[in-house]
């Protein structure tokens, strides 16, 4: 089936099998391998991307469900002028160790900060409940998201 998507601002038109998962469409068909697969069972959040501006787990969405929609992956966050403030905050606050969960964390944070630009620490922790990290113990991830919120002062994406 032919589907058309806009990914990180670029239009794509591809022929996909209905059973193709969105994450495989992004990684294998568009070559956007920044989005990771961790659990493949909707639990870990490594595959989180933005679908029409909101976080979704791309291992639990069919590519055909994204037909005609707007997607943003981790590759769409940095611009010519440098890293996105959320990425920068992760870098500066040591918000990653192995980095496997990081693309999903950044995208979940981007979606959340759009809904809640001035969160408390507790709200950040709740917002990231669907994203698992096996390295950091979360503390510096939460610190990064709070730093990003301050740096952005409510301006997101």
């Amino acid at each position: 089936m032919q589907i058309t998507t806009t990914v990180n601002g670029h239009p794509y038109s591809k022929d996909v099998e209905p059973r193709t998962l969105l994450v495989h469409y992004l990684r294998d068909m568009l070559g956007l391998t920044g989005t990771n697969v961790g659990c493949d069972t909707s639990s870990c959040g490594a595959c989180t991307i933005l679908l029409n501006g909101e976080s979704v787990k791309s291992c639990t969405v069919l590519a055909v469900q994204a037909d005609g929609q707007e997607l943003v992956t981790i590759e769409g966050m940095a611009t010519e002028s440098g890293l996105h403030p959320i990425q920068k905050a992760f870098q500066e606050n040591h918000g990653l160790q192995c980095g496997y969960c990081t693309p999903g964390m950044v995208m979940a944070a981007a979606s959340f900060l759009k809904e809640n630009p001035k969160p408390t620490e507790h709200e950040v922790r709740e917002a990231l409940e669907g994203n698992l990290c096996r390295c950091t113990g979360y503390h510096n991830i939460v610190k990064s998201v709070l730093a990003a919120a301050t740096a952005m002062e409510g301006v997101v994406l």
């Binding site: 909707s42 679908l51 976080s55 787990k57 639990t60 979940a108 979606s111 959340f112 409940e129 669907g130």
Partner: peptide, 9 residues
Amino acid sequence: VGDPSVRHR
């Protein structure tokens, strides 16, 4: 229910 990404779908 679930987490924010689950609730978006």
